[in-house]
Design a protein around this nucleic acid. Structure first.
Lengths: 124, 124
DNA sequence: TCTTGACATAGAGTTTACTCTACATTGTAT
DNA sequence: ATACAATGTAGAGTAAACTCTATGTCAAGA
């Protein structure tokens, strides 16, 4: 299957403008048809999902763009790409650990609020 | 203890420009001395740590600012503040769950890369 | 054929969260 | 008393990631 930019936009949840921006930044390079229209493939779909994953895990566009460039260069860049992913996993693990710590503190704070509100009710 | 903006900046790791910006946005309101200089207290320190927590867990400045406004209004806003925190906790739990899912996929991808690189080595 | 809607490019504008500059004032060490 | 470092305000500038506008092209249905 191939998709027009409009169809692809609906499939991915990314706006048309965003897709063109991503292309401009070198994240994705869809084929073009005879009339110069973009033709996104299922491979592009899989790829954009991965890009979204990197984005959600706070990889900057620039870095994702670099990864995309390596990817486009073929198998010779496999280990370099893997290194990037391993490093990114490390960052992700740290993110998760920190959020879990934040969650504990937030739980504590909420519990404090609960008690404080209860106390104020009891007094009145 | 009270701290000048320079001292407070070092203690918190936030730049002095950022501290003034936070004040402008209503996140924090340090006392002033006779010469109009800011005097941050230990209470401000605790408060700024909490602000950093909210920031790290992706609460926008605007929302944090709203929370700060409620806090400044006193006990009558306790339950409203708690509601905000409970909602934020919900968002945080979703963030953590999503990151954990991303981590699994990333682990898979890295494993795929590892095998692929190994395969290429074997062939050559 | 005509119109309309999706798509094309180039470039401007927006949002968020800072970060810096210019210039005035104050506190402190000599 | 003087220099100079820290601080004050107001407002401009920056970076990242979109998001929109202007203008033009093209393909398909009435």
């Amino acid at each position: 299957m191939v998709y027009s930019i409009g169809e692809f936009s609906k499939l991915t949840g990314l706006g048309i403008h965003t897709l063109r921006y991503y292309e401009h930044e070198g994240l994705i390079a869809p084929e073009r048809n005879s009339g110069n229209r973009r033709c996104y493939s299922d491979k592009d779909l899989t790829w954009i999902y991965f890009i979204k994953r990197l984005k959600d895990t706070r990889m900057p566009i620039r870095e994702t763009s670099h990864y995309a460039k390596l990817r486009a260069a073929g198998d010779s860049t496999l280990s370099e790409r893997m290194e990037m992913l391993v490093q990114h996993r490390q960052a992700l693990n740290e993110q998760i650990a920190q959020l879990q710590e934040h969650k504990i503190k937030l739980d504590d704070k909420i519990e404090f609020y609960r008690k404080e509100i209860e106390r104020l009710h009891d007094v009145s």
